[in-house]
Structure formats: C-alpha cells, structure tokens
C-alpha cells in the first residue's frame, strides 16, 4: 500500500520563499478584482469555497483523512450565522462568531466519534454523520426546512463597514479568506503540521515514535471543521441565504472534487480547484443535470490519470512544493 501522496509531493527544495511569493501574487490578483470588471459575486462565492476546500485539504492532504461530510460544517455554521443575524439581529462580526462557534462544537463532537476508525471507515462515518445532520435540519423548525433561511440582513461590520455595498463586502470576504488561508499555511508549517504529515505517511511509525496520533488527528479535525465553518459563515453574507443544499452530501462531494482537481496536499491547489469548479458550474448552468455527469467524469479522469491535480503537476514539474 503506497501512501496517499507518494507521487504528489516531490519535495527536493522545500522553501517557504516560493510559497510566500505565490501567496503575495495571489493576494494582489484577488485584491485587484473589483477594478477589472469581473463579476464580484462569482469571485466571492469562489473564495468561500476555496477556504472550505483549504480547510478540507488540511485534513486529507496533511492528515490523510478523507472526510466525506465537510458540508455539515459549512451548513451548520451557515444556519447558525443566518439565525443569529436575522432572528437575534446580531451585528455581522458576532454573527460570524456564532457560526464559527457552532462549527467548533460540532467538529468536537463529530471528531470524537469519527476519529475512532481509520481509512475508508472514517470516510463512511463522516458521510453518515453529515446525512444525520441533514435530516435533523430538514425537520428542525429554525432552519425552515426546504425553504431555508432567506433574506438575511448583511448589516454593518464593526458598525462602519457597510456590507450591502458589493465592493466593501468583497474586501471583507477577501480578508476573511486570506486570514483563514494564512492560518492553514501556518498550521501546515508548524511542528504540529510536521507530525500530522508523518501520520499521513506512516501512522504506525508515528505511534512507535511516541506520538499520540489520535490526539493529533482529533485536533486536525477540529481545526479543519472550524475553518470550514468560517467559510460557511462568510458564505451567508454572499448568498444571503442558508439552505439544505449546503448540508447535502453532494456539497461534500463537490469540496472533495475541488481539492482533487487542484491537488491533494498542495497549499494552493484547493484555491485553484474551487475557482475551476465554481466557474464550470456558472458557465455550464444551462446544461442542467449534465453538470453532474461532467463532475463525475472529472472525478474519474482525475483519479485515473491526474492524481496530482493542477497545482500538484506544476509543483512536480518545477520540483517545488506549492
């Protein structure tokens, strides 16, 4: 059994310098979007999914744990933020905090349960847990079932930033995304991240070296789930609704697809993957169910021929880690 990323990370020169340069370029490109005439709503949506995919990638790419239920954090944080903003009329910053807190609590509970099994069972458990939450949200009164929570007020962040203005909202979402991204970047390059990678490569050996691998995996799960919740809270301001689609298994599958296309275990891959998949959905929306068929085909093609993903291939070609 070869490890997950045997052929995805040919790290000969592992320097954080390259990664910082790419990060600055990415941040500048994203910051200039409002001046280019690109539809900001599309980019904001993609940024939320990019953050979600990065959070997911923290678990699969660095911990070797394939969660097939990450939509539950996105949806839970979304519902809680939406409820806090609309019913409790909290200001945006507190609304986001409520969503993050909800995702944090949920990830502690689900992490405690799912970490008990490894490999393929872990994926099935996370999928089943997210389906459990889907049915709970379908019946719970505060989510308004099939309708979802609609018409969420965007309000003024910190009392000054008027989020009803698209440009202001765009920069708030961008700052949120970059903050989340940097945090993940920091986690990956910390001693904790190194231990996580060793667990991915060979858990038995990590145990024999004296690491309590379950605790590392649990912490990675909680970090990943909480950050995914942050993405869900941000998304509420962009979409102005919270609905069952965000908790559905197909959403979990989309997150997996984004990360796979961009490159599992690469730092920038999930961002690229999110933009590719969201753009594809935008341009192919008129094809109806064929979008599902195309997504399935991308899965098949990626797994059979393109396991490194876009960024993984580039990194492999230049023999860098990106």
């Amino acid at each position: 059994m070869t490890a997950l990323t045997d052929d995805t990370l040919p790290v000969t020169s592992r320097g954080m310098r390259d990664e910082m340069i790419v990060f600055v370029v990415m941040a500048l490109l994203l910051a200039s979007v409002p001046f280019t005439g690109v539809y900001p709503f599309f980019v904001m949506q993609a940024l939320c999914f990019a953050l979600l995919a990065c959070a997911f990638n923290l678990l699969i790419g660095y911990g070797g744990l394939l969660s097939f239920g990450h939509a539950m954090f996105l949806g839970t944080a979304g519902y809680c933020s939406a409820h806090a903003l609309k019913v409790w009329a909290l200001p945006p910053e507190l609304g986001i905090l409520v969503g993050i807190a909800a995702a944090f609590v949920l990830s502690i509970i689900t992490g405690y349960i799912s970490i008990r099994r490894q490999g393929i069972y872990f994926s099935m458990i996370t999928l089943a847990l997210s389906q459990l939450l889907y049915f709970i949200y379908l019946q719970a009164p505060f989510t308004h079932g099939e309708d979802g929570i609609q018409g969420i007020p965007q309000g003024r962040m910190f009392g000054v930033l008027d989020l009803t203005k698209p440009t202001v909202l765009y920069y708030v979402v961008l700052v949120g995304f970059l903050a989340g991204f940097l945090l993940i970047f920091r986690i990956i390059n910390s001693p904790f991240g190194e231990v996580l990678k060793s667990i991915r490569e060979n858990e038995q050996r990590a145990i024999s070296l004296g690491y309590r691998t379950d605790q590392y995996k649990f912490l990675a799960f909680v970090l990943s789930g909480t950050l995914a919740g942050f993405a869900g809270s941000l998304k509420v301001f962009v979409a102005q609704n919270a609905s069952l689609t965000d908790v559905h298994w197909s959403m979990s599958g989309e997150v997996v697809l984004m990360t796979l296309v961009g490159g599992l275990g690469t730092i920038f891959g999930p961002v690229v993957g999110a933009f590719v998949i969201i753009a594809m959905q935008q341009y192919l929306a008129s094809f109806g169910q064929w979008v599902t068929v195309i997504q399935g085909s991308i899965f098949v093609i990626c797994v059979l021929t393109f396991r490194r993903g876009v960024i993984g291939e580039i990194a492999h070609y230049f023999r860098r880690s990106l």
Partner: peptide, 25 residues
C-alpha cells in the same frame, strides 16, 4: 491496485455521479 483506498472511493463516487446524472437527464 496498490493505491490508497480513498482513490477507489473517489473513482466509484465519480461513476455514481455519471450514472445517476445520465438517468436524471
């Protein structure tokens, strides 16, 4: 054969999406 378990899950998930999508169309 010989790859990590999760690739099998991802591949068959893709196949499921294709088959279900075609029938839904």
């Amino acid at each position: 054969t010989g790859l990590d378990h999760l690739y099998g899950l991802l591949l068959t998930f893709g196949i499921a999406l294709i088959v279900q999508g075609v029938f839904q169309n």
